[in-house]
């Protein structure tokens, strides 16, 4: 159950014990990350939508941007990864298992449903040079940065003769 489902309940409606336990687990996870890693909340919780938000790491090297997303139980064939400008979006769905009639759920701590996770990339990237792998529920994207032209140095030729009025013996300073 997403957090927002808990928050939109009417005051008279008491959340179930399992829902409270789940909320507590989510809060502990968030605070663990804030304390241990200094998570940027504004990047983590805004600009993305869905029933759950996959955790992501974004890092860079000189040549590329690396995005790693935790997607346990998600079929990689159903993932939709797009790059538009400097925005990367990872969209997909983690489908819950269909229960047989005789099965009873005792606890649901895993997260299911649709998600869209957007990440702002630090630089322009070349989306034609992207490498994506999915292993053990973790998506890893290597996205090449756009190689910017450093500019061409223009050599300046010294004049063959001094300008009229120039004193060739005068020293220069700058």
């Amino acid at each position: 159950m997403p957090l927002r489902d808990l928050l939109t309940k009417s005051p008279k409606e008491e959340p179930s014990e399992s829902a409270v336990k789940k909320l507590k687990g989510e809060m502990e996870r968030i605070f663990d990350r804030i304390v241990d890693e200094g998570v940027h909340l504004h990047d983590s919780f805004f600009g993305s939508t869905g029933e759950w938000l996959p955790a992501v790491d974004v890092s860079e090297t000189v040549e590329e941007v690396i995005v790693i997303a935790e997607l346990p139980g998600v079929d990689p064939a159903t993932l939709d990864v797009t790059i538009q400008g400097q925005t990367l979006a990872i969209a997909g769905e983690k489908k819950p298992r269909v229960l047989a009639s005789e099965e009873k759920v005792h606890e649901t701590g895993c997260r299911y449903g649709c998600f869209i996770r957007r990440v702002t990339l630090p630089v322009d990237v070349d989306d034609s040079k992207t490498d994506a792998t999915f292993a053990n529920g973790v998506l890893t994207l290597h996205i090449a940065k756009v190689v910017t032209n450093p500019g061409k140095r223009i050599d300046i030729q010294a004049a063959s003769a001094p300008f009229p009025g120039d004193d060739p013996l005068a020293s220069t300073s700058c």
Binding site: D32, D43, V56, D57, V58, S59, P122, T140
Partner: peptide
Amino acid sequence: RQLESTAYLLREFA
């Protein structure tokens, strides 16, 4: 998942 010297821009995993 990454090396100590990785330059993180956003980090949600430990």
